[in-house]
Write a protein that binds this DNA or RNA. Structure first.
Length: 906
RNA sequence: AGGCCCGUAGCUCAGUUGGUUAGAGCGCUACCUUGACACGGUAGAGGUCUGGGGUUCGAGUCCCCACGGGCCUACCA
């Protein structure tokens, strides 16, 4: 049977087929009743109306690598997918969408608007999950969840009501962050601070009944319209005589009291502060202490309101300009100074957040935080990388109450009802018919919804069936691990830890791995809105999803942000192509071999592969011994690396193994064996080749699922074997007696590699025609080394392109040849007179220098008594051995140099 | 204001408790279209680890200072 294999790996031809197959076969469906250790992971639910961006790609790659790896290690594995309703951003998207059609959402009304969003969700809401299927994420799609589904909504209500009953949720008038564009209150976390160059306006407030002025300094003159006092420090003698008097608020002609409060810093500004309780956090506190009126002078969308008198209707920043001009005209503006201050910006709209007094729902955090601090301190929840742990603890120890309500229409409606008569609050799981206090039937539900993070904070247990004690909950909770970006450590991770412990009594996960961010070349966070992001869907199409995954993984060192470039993607694509072509080599040659009557099944059936490596006449061929040893070592490093989230390290070793060891050396070495006229010998070679290839594919599978699945299916499988993903990952230690253990003979192959490389080096240096076979000589004073070369002569001649290699115990002639030396052997190729020796001489001189330095440094250290008494035995002995070798090498090198001097005199 | 991180080859980055001539990919140089692969092969060049000081037998790795870059937290008008 001749096999058709394309010359180049073409992921576009392969990926869609497998992606579809994996989903259709429900390959990754978990079984809560299955035996074995459990690996469970919930997805950080992406925005339901979003699409896959490069950050998801990294995150999902890491999750899927660990998921696939655990599955192949025999764990009962669940990767639970889902999406988030993402209150503000989704509402914004739909509002804009409606606006494009000329529809004002306010006019639609709440109910109709909600319908529109659900419609939008139905149309656009599966884009990201379809993309996840397309990139082959090994999710259990039967368990997909959505944070705003009826099922999840019930959990949200349950939690809200319980917290309210426990007294941890309350409603209060407070100073909050208001976004005039999103038209909602924001939590502290949603406000980003940015240092900006601003001004300090010094404004003269006339003191009533005197000719004096009290000068206040402010960064936001427009708020003065809402001033209800001026405050000075009680210890400030400059102003002591004014306390108790009234100031006349300019522009408003309102008399406001001059009060004394400790809050005022005498050194800052003028030492007198205008107090606007409704628009400044500090002023709010002062206002409460002094029972001042709170005058909100703005509208929801950031314009001045009726309380702003003549300025009503003007945008807040226009009002600022106008007020400054008006003050100037009145002669009440003393001066303007430069001042940098950190202003709060809304993370979504990038507008300046307006602090405002407002009645909202809050959650008390301290009692929730305490146990959540303890589990991290005790190490029950491990946070990786370590430095994020400290960040978490610092933040948690200074946690402040959480503003829960949002003035949106898209989200979990707050389950609180107010009776119109008495304003009693009824909080309930089911929509109540009557007021819980006065039995009034005239109820109105709170119009607001909950912060989106409230429902995502329940995600690890709400998705698994809590509050019911379902089989899923019993088996998969606590989840094993959470992988997410460090930028949402507080938003999300901390809240899941708190709510998880509070409601389930258990930790939500055993470990949190906080992955890096993907940045642009100039170091910024990639952003679609700024157009600085790379589109993973397009890149996957171009280079292959496997290449993308491998590329990201190979750069995903914990704690280091990633700068992605197409160069790197191309390099990963080349790796995929290399593997593809290794497979192509196998199958193209197999066709020829099968012609002799041996079928693929006999060489590579699962049970045949399982017993590798095979010996020929009870001797394991040298290259096989070496290769299977390398495979073992690679497996071991990979397993350790993956267990510690060191994706880059795992990627690097499998790359080295596959390309360097397997392709460059092993395949090259065994080529003649595969067609050996001794059929038995050839069969052994084939069996080992297939077995090694299969194991390498399984090792690589978590990183490159499509390619490995495709190639694995070319090997014969057991009946019913559906996927490489359901097979066992290679083990890094023998499971049974008689299993392969890498032996000392692996060093023999290393020696052979050395001599080949040295010969090639000489050839290149002498600029010999690559195809021209020449004779070489090798000398070693060690019998076993000479025997090794003699044993492996054919391979050496072939790979070093030699016509002959004479192995001798006699020193090589010093003149007329290029020599490479190691401490164990010398190898030499004679040259003709025409050779230019300058390059050779320069090279040797340089090496000589380096060697002398290395030797000197070791001699110095080894001669130092303190070093000998304090350094570990292992280091000293290693150093001595190396020193001995280097001395021999140096000696040989110097002989060579002096010989060269002589040679070049002619 | 407080805290954290980074500065290693032309570029992007590894380098786990301090220990023998500091690694990778890309790029570069030379040669090679050899029947798996030019998305390839072979060989090679290239850093003394931002600067200064210290601890140590020994520092890219630990400490201090400086310079440069980034991030987070924070109610100074």
């Amino acid at each position: 049977m001749a096999r058709e294999i394309a010359k180049t790996y073409e992921p576009q031809q392969i990926e869609p087929r497998w992606a579809e197959y994996w989903v259709k076969e429900e390959l990754y469906k978990a079984d809560a009743n299955a035996p074995g250790p459990v690996f469970s992971i919930v997805i950080p639910p992406p925005n339901v109306t979003g699409s896959l961006h490069i950050g998801h790609m990294l995150e999902h790659t890491e999750i899927d690598i660990l998921t696939r790896w655990h599955r192949m290690m025999g764990y009962n594995t669940l990767y639970l997918p889902g999406t988030d309703h993402a209150g503000i951003s989704t509402q914004r998207v739909v509002v804009k969408h409606l606006m494009d059609q000329g529809i004002d959402y306010h006019k639609l009304g709440r109910e109709e608007f909600e319908k529109q969003v659900w419609k939008w969700k139905a149309e656009a809401g599966s884009q990201i999950t379809q993309q996840m299927r397309a990139i082959g994420e090994s999710c259990d799609w039967s368990r997909e969840k959505f944070t705003l589904s009826p099922e999840m909504s019930r959990v949200v209500r349950e939690v809200f009501v319980r917290l309210y009953e426990e007294g941890l949720i309350y409603r209060e008038n407070r100073l909050v962050n208001w976004c005039p564009v999103c038209l909602t209150v924001l939590s502290d976390l949603e406000v980003a601070h940015e240092e900006r160059q601003g001004h300090l306006w010094h404004i003269k407030y006339p003191v009533a009944g005197t000719k004096e002025f009290l000068v206040v300094a402010t960064t936001r003159p427009e708020t003065m319209l809402g001033d209800t006092a001026v405050a000075v420090n009680p210890k400030d003698e400059r102003y002591a005589h004014l306390v108790g008097k009234k100031a006349l608020l300019p522009l408003m002609n309102r008399e406001i009291p001059i009060i004394a409060d400790e809050m005022v810093d005498r050194e800052f500004g003028t030492g007198a502060v205008k107090i606007t309780p409704a628009h400044d956090p500090n002023d709010f506190e002062v206002g409460r202490r002094h029972k001042l009126a709170e005058i909100d002078v703005m509208t929801d969308d950031g314009k001045m309101n009726a309380a702003a008198g003549a300025y009503a209707g003007i945008d807040r920043f226009e009002a600022r300009k106008k007020i400054v001009e008006d003050l100037k005209a009145l002669g009440l503006l003393e001066k303007i100074t430069e001042h940098t201050n950190a202003i709060g910006l809304c993370e979504r709209s990038n507008t300046i957040v307006e602090p405002r007094a407002s009645t909202q729902w809050f959650c008390t955090m301290k009692p929730l935080a305490e146990p959540a601090i303890a589990v991290v301190e005790r190490g029950e929840i491990q946070i990786v990388p370590e430095n994020r742990r400290q960040e978490y603890l610092n933040w948690m120890r200074n946690i402040r109450d959480w503003t829960l309500s949002r003035q949106l229409w898209w989200g979990h409606r707050i389950p609180a009802w107010y009776c119109k008569e008495n304003k009693h609050i009824t909080v309930a799981r089911e929509t109540p018919a009557k007021c819980g206090t006065c039995r009034s039937a005239n109820l109105e539900q709170d119009p607001d919804v909950l912060d989106t993070w409230f429902s995502s904070g329940l995600w690890p247990f709400s998705t698994l069936g809590w509050p019911e004690n379902t089989a899923d909950f019993k088996t998969y909770y606590p989840t094993t691990l959470l992988i997410t970006g460090y930028d949402i450590l507080f938003f999300w991770v901390a809240r899941m830890i708190m709510l998880g412990i509070h409601f389930t009594g258990k930790i939500a996960f055993h470990a949190v791995y906080l992955h890096s961010l993907v940045r642009t070349g100039s170091g910024e966070k990639m952003s679609k809105t700024k157009g600085t992001g790379l589109d993973p869907v397009a890149l996957n199409q171009q280079y292959g999803t496997d290449a993308m995954r491998f590329c990201l993984a190979s750069m995903a060192a914990p704690g280091t942000d990633i700068v992605l470039s197409e160069d790197k993607l191309a390099s990963a694509r080349n790796f995929a192509n290399k593997i593809w072509n290794a497979a192509r080599f196998l199958f193209v040659n197999l066709d020829k071999f099968e012609a002799g009557g041996t079928k693929l099944e006999e060489l590579a059936a699962p049970e045949v592969r399982a017993k590798a490596p095979y010996a020929y006449r009870s001797i394991l061929p040298l290259a096989d011994e070496w290769l299977f040893g390398r495979l073992m070592a690679t497996t071991s490093v990979m397993n350790t690396a993956l267990a510690n989230y060191r994706f880059h390290e795992a990627a690097q070793v499998i790359y080295q193994f596959f390309w360097g060891d397997f392709c460059d050396w092993y395949i090259e070495w065994i080529k003649p064996e595969l067609q050996n006229s001794d059929r038995e010998r050839a069969v052994v070679a084939w069996k080992n080749l297939f077995a090694a290839f299969d194991r390498a594919l399984r090792l690589l599978h978590p990183f490159m699922p499509f390619l490995t699945e495709e190639l694995w299916h070319q090997l014969p499988q057991r009946l019913g074997d559906k996927s490489i993903a359901l097979n066992e990952s290679p083990q890094d230690r023998p499971k049974h007696n008689g299993d392969f253990i890498a032996g000392e003979r692996a060093n023999e192959f290393t020696r052979v590699q050395e001599v080949i490389t040295h010969v090639r080096n000489i050839r290149a240096e002498l600029k010999l025609d690559p195809r021209k076979k020449v004779a070489a000589e090798v000398y070693s004073s060690y019998k076993d080394i000479r025997e090794q070369f003699a044993r492996n002569l054919d391979g050496i001649l072939r790979l070093a392109i030699l016509s002959d290699l004479s192995v001798s115990a006699d020193r090589l002639p010093q003149e007329g040849g290029a020599v490479r030396s190691t401490s164990l052997f010398d190898v030499r190729i004679a040259y003709s007179d025409a050779v230019d020796l300058r390059a050779e001489k320069a090279r040797l001189k340089k090496e000589n220098e380096g060697l002398q330095k290395a030797i000197a440094s070791k001699e110095r250290q080894l001669g130092d008594e303190t070093f000998r008494s304090r350094a570990p035995e292992k280091i000293i002995r290693g150093m001595e051995a190396t020193l001995a070798e280097q001395r021999i090498e140096l000696h040989k090198l110097q002989d060579r140099l002096s010989q060269l001097e002589k040679d070049s005199q002619f």
